[in-house]
Amino acid sequence: MPDADPALTVRDLTVAYNEEPVLWDIDWTVPAGTLTGIVGPNGAGKTTLLQAILGIETPAAGQVRIFGQSYEAARDRVGYVPQRGSVDWDFPTDALDVVLMGLYGRLGWIRRPGAEEKEEAHAALEQVGMADYADRQISQLSGGQQQRVFLARALVQEADLYFMDEPLQGVDATTERALFDLLRTLQQRDCTVVAVHHDLQTVPEYFDRVLLLNVRRIASGPVEEVFTEENLRRTYGGRVGFLRKNESPISDSASAPNRKEESRA
């Protein structure tokens, strides 16, 4: 169902940790039915932006509207895939149980998932090719498999708008393609997908629209308009080798500025 309202409108959003602004005056609109990428260096505030939109972090200022409503009112229409490293994979539980968590919102307080929910979770695991791993303890899954479980968990939410924090992180090339096809399928079902992405080379291929972020919004809009070398340089501080379309790509690593990802993991 096409919405008259944009899937997401962010106005004047500012978020600070200890008086230190990590997001500054963000204005951003995501039209419904699009596949939007967020790119920016480590520490640019990508995760913080998603968390502020989802009410996990409280913004210092600004407004967020989802399909024209407040987040609380539109909560049921939103799905979320956090960064894989944000949870403890040694937690005593199995893959199916993690997927079931996606249904907790629909169940509400106190009610527990039953047979019907388990079936849905199984179906979602099947969609991401993980049906055989349903009762595997989650610490015994590979990084890519954990990522798929997270995606399956988002799928069962049956949301209209998905926020995904690096859903393709740590997966091999074949898996990346398969997962990406899944995002396309979602889009064909009129879902809107917003995903943080780290590989600049695949941005034009994967996304319709892009937000370039580094504390401030550097640019946002259709990929062919805003995903330019000039904008990328402004986002990444001039350290990016990136060529325009139709020329061979030479950028080997886009996320050079401060690679804290490794040390964090």
């Binding site: 009410g55 996990i56 909560r75 949870v87 993690v98 106190i110």
Partner: peptide, 22 residues
């Protein structure tokens, strides 16, 4: 017993718990 599922979610993934309103 009452809040088993909520406690589990908030412990494993506080981000998702918050985004689902728990």
């Amino acid at each position: 017993a009452l809040f088993y599922k909520e406690l589990k979610l908030a412990t494993f993934d506080p981000g998702l718990a918050a985004s689902l309103g728990f």
